[in-house]
Design a binder for these strands. Structure first.
Length: 233
DNA sequence: TTGGCGATTGGCT
DNA sequence: GCCAATCGCCAAT
């Protein structure tokens, strides 16, 4: 349990891990019964441009390292908030709240929405340019008991389907604002080399300005994706 | 200093 | 499908 989450690319004894154990979550694909240890994403390998990054992050792993253990999952839904987007928090320039959006790509921007839900974004574009990608849902793979505890439900489909639920499941709040997600630490992005499945594109959810742009990305047919059926075809 | 407004969620009809 | 809960942010007073 100790070891790989903190230093994801260093070797640890296989016996201390259960990462090759069946997880039984991928009911749509019976052959997918194991998960490999994710490898920390290299910043140099992630796209600079916001919309490209939103597509790139589909299928990648989001890993949360907690005292209780590791909770992680596969990203199945994102939204891009590119340069000059009137729906984006960076639209009116840098402020104390949104400063993390202006960091080099691959940093976390976490804010509170509706006084209730924390939202996790990945900063994009060049340093000093405000833009980012909202992570809207993950398919839980590791630490499901931790997520169940944090969410108060045992319905796996409901653990991290939606940006607020995802943050609750992984104990993400403002304390993680501005951290580097391309570095081993409490929260990081990884890849296990697996393909994401077919990616769909749609309008974004829950916004009023620039509401018709096709800036939402999701895995087609994946039941851990949030939003109405009409947007998930 | 204030008030309108959300990149949402869960419970109820 | 509808709507209240809840609170930090920030533009405007």
């Amino acid at each position: 349990m100790t070891g790989w989450p903190v230093s994801p690319n260093t070797s640890v004894s296989r016996s201390s891990l259960d990462l090759r154990a069946p997880i039984g979550l991928s009911e749509w694909d019976e052959s997918d019964t194991t998960v490999a240890r994710p490898r920390l994403l290299d910043r140099a390998d992630i796209p600079v441009e916001t919309v490209q990054l939103a597509g790139f992050l589909i299928g990648k792993m989001l890993v949360r390292v907690l005292a209780e253990g590791v909770a992680a999952g596969r990203i199945v839904e994102t939204e891009a908030y590119p340069i000059g987007d009137p729906a984006g928090h960076a639209y009116r320039g840098i402020t104390p709240r949104n400063r993390a959006l202006f960091l080099e790509r691959g940093h976390a921007y976490v804010y509170l929405a509706y006084g209730i839900s924390f939202m996790l974004n990945v900063s994009s574009e060049a340093p000093g340019v405000g833009a980012g990608v909202l992570i809207r849902a993950i398919e839980p793979t590791h630490g499901i008991a931790i997520m169940e505890q944090n969410r108060g439900t045992e319905r796996v489909r409901d653990l991290a389907r939606g940006p607020g639920r995802l943050s609750a499941a992984l104990e993400i709040d403002r304390r993680l604002d501005a951290i580097d997600l391309c570095q081993a630490g409490p929260l990081w992005l990884g890849s296990d080399g697996r393909a994401s499945g077919e990616i769909g594109q749609s309008k974004r959810i829950g916004i009023t300005r620039a509401a018709d742009s096709l800036l939402r990305f999701y895995v087609r047919g994946n039941r851990f994706v949030s939003g109405p059926q009409t947007l998930n075809r």
